[in-house]
Design a protein around this nucleic acid. Sequence first.
DNA 1: GTCTATATTATGATAGAC
DNA 2: GTCTATCATAATATAGAC
Lengths: 194, 194
Amino acid sequence: MARTQGSRADVTGPLIRTHARRLFARQGYAAVSMRQIASAVGVQAGALYAYTPDKQALLFDLLESHMQELLGAWTDVPGDPLARLEHFVRFHIDTSLDHADTVFLSYMELRNLTPKNYARIAALRGEYEAALEAILRDGMAAGLMRIDDARLATMALIAMLTGVTNWYREGGRLDRRRIGDIYWGLARGAVGAD
Amino acid sequence: MARTQGSRADVTGPLIRTHARRLFARQGYAAVSMRQIASAVGVQAGALYAYTPDKQALLFDLLESHMQELLGAWTDVPGDPLARLEHFVRFHIDTSLDHADTVFLSYMELRNLTPKNYARIAALRGEYEAALEAILRDGMAAGLMRIDDARLATMALIAMLTGVTNWYREGGRLDRRRIGDIYWGLARGAVGAD
DNA sequence: GTCTATATTATGATAGAC
DNA sequence: GTCTATCATAATATAGAC
């Protein structure tokens, strides 16, 4: 609640998203008021409505742009399914830690989306899951992986990797590279590639 | 919002817990009002305060009694670490699915606890994690498992197993027994026991 | 133990001035 | 684009009657 006048559209928009993301992740969508977001940004509550039609749209935009960014950032590598799986493991851990707030939001606040908005996010998530499942199926076909059920293995691996966000703390016992190594070992074993 | 008078202490208490648990899990703690819980139970909002000092205590009671029940229900089996791990895998999946609402709550609403209440739940969770970690360490010591980091493997396995609640639907493609088989295969591979 | 009524505070969203 | 002021509604929690 700093300024009392003046237009700064270029900076206010991103600030709203940043602070909303952080607050939603830390306290939950329903527990955060528009006034609280405005206060963090340094504007009055009314000003937020120049950037978003309502609170729901703000949440949806955060989740959708995150999924779009995730899908845009993911690039499969050609060749050996095991190398591709290792790449996915490291990519997923790194991006999950880079966007821990949004990742948490994506699991937590799906239920606060309208049905239509929910369907959109679920579809994007399905695309991402399909990328991993394709790798596993290729690995099975090539005889490099022993997997009972590719769909369940996909869900299991994503849950396992995303779980890093539950305990990781910057400056902790292990750095990211080492964590990636360890989880790649777990994933490789899980798909029977040892 | 059915009755208009009459005392039914024996049934109202459990009903409050049951409906609060379901509503908190489906909509989030902050999004659920005391009126909403009261309405589901069939009493007026004021009546809830004969059972709980406030909303926060209601959430804490649900989480704490769940953790107590989980710890009470868990019994290690003697002998082979691999058999003990299989037992843990099936136990964790089964109880997670039996208490899907509370499991979800336990991950999502920890941040809505006061620091003291949070510390209590975290301690109970730590006890449970320690049970799995002990199995993994015994397996490593016995040369039956190849694990880089027992602590991370513990967190990874629990996240993987708990993730079942994210996609499981009653009457779906796979029954619980089969799901347990598949996840046991994944877990066994992850700890290098193939 | 439960109801009705209410105190108090906060919420999402809008209108109009600058 | 932002502020101030405000509407309409809803929240948690309490008091006192039955």
